[in-house]
């Protein structure tokens, strides 16, 4: 790329440069890495990244094909859930788990801000971090704990949190988590613990 001269006139010059940029092997690897990092792990398996990069190259950057390659990859299913839900994902999951969609956006927007992901307002142009390492922060976890308690303490007629764990995590529910929920001192506390459990925080 660098050092090449694009002789096309006007707009075609830019398009030619972008097209070559898009076809560059480094671009395929970059997109593949971001894709795998978002869905699988902060440090995704190299074989998976390579397969995704090949898919991107071979299909001329077809994102649907890229997604299908990911879904068909064993690594996407076997990797341990090391990703942490972003605040956005956490709040949406919380609303779904508790069966309480917000009537207005206010609480969700406030929650996003307090958890460090204000809607569409990242601190820099590179957007919000997409690594678990960035979100597993002391202040972030404390904020999630407070928010989980605030949600749980407002719910009056809730189902058994241990049953909810089954619905949410199925076979992936850890017996340790189940026991902790059953030993909680109130249903509200058990629900807050469910919202904070690795099963609900990790993905």
């Amino acid at each position: 790329m660098l050092g090449r001269i694009y002789a096309q006139p006007d707009r075609a010059q830019g398009l030619a440069a972008l097209e070559e940029l898009a076809r560059h092997p480094s671009t395929a690897r970059h997109i593949a890495t971001k894709f795998a990092r978002h869905f699988v792990a902060d440090e995704p398996p190299p074989a998976l990244v390579e397969r995704l990069a090949r898919s991107f190259r071979d299909t001329g950057g077809d994102l649907k094909a890229l997604a299908e390659t990911l879904v068909a990859s064993p690594e996407a299913w076997s990797a341990p859930p090391t990703k942490l839900r972003t605040p956005y994902e956490f709040l949406i999951a919380t609303a779904r788990m508790t069966g309480r969609a917000p009537i207005n956006a206010g609480p969700i927007l406030g929650g996003l801000a307090s958890l460090g992901q204000p809607l569409w307002a990242p601190a820099g142009p590179n957007g919000f971090a997409d690594t678990a390492a960035a979100w597993v922060s002391p202040e972030g976890m404390k904020a999630r704990l407070d928010l989980s308690w605030q949600v749980a303490s407002r719910i009056q007629d809730m189902s058994d949190p241990a049953e909810l764990l089954d619905k949410v995590a199925g076979a992936a529910a850890s017996p340790v988590t189940r026991q902790a929920l059953e030993r909680a001192e109130s249903r509200q506390q058990a629900l807050a613990m469910l919202l904070m459990s690795p099963e609900a925080q990790r993905r």
């Binding site: 597993v136 976890m141 704990l145």
Partner: peptide
């Protein structure tokens, strides 16, 4: 109490979360 219980649960299941929450 809730914080204490979560740290205890994380210690058995997710040490990274345990450390982060404990520090927070």
């Amino acid at each position: 109490d809730l914080g204490r219980r979560m740290i205890d649960l994380y210690r058995h299941t997710d040490p990274a979360l345990a450390e982060a929450l404990a520090r927070g």
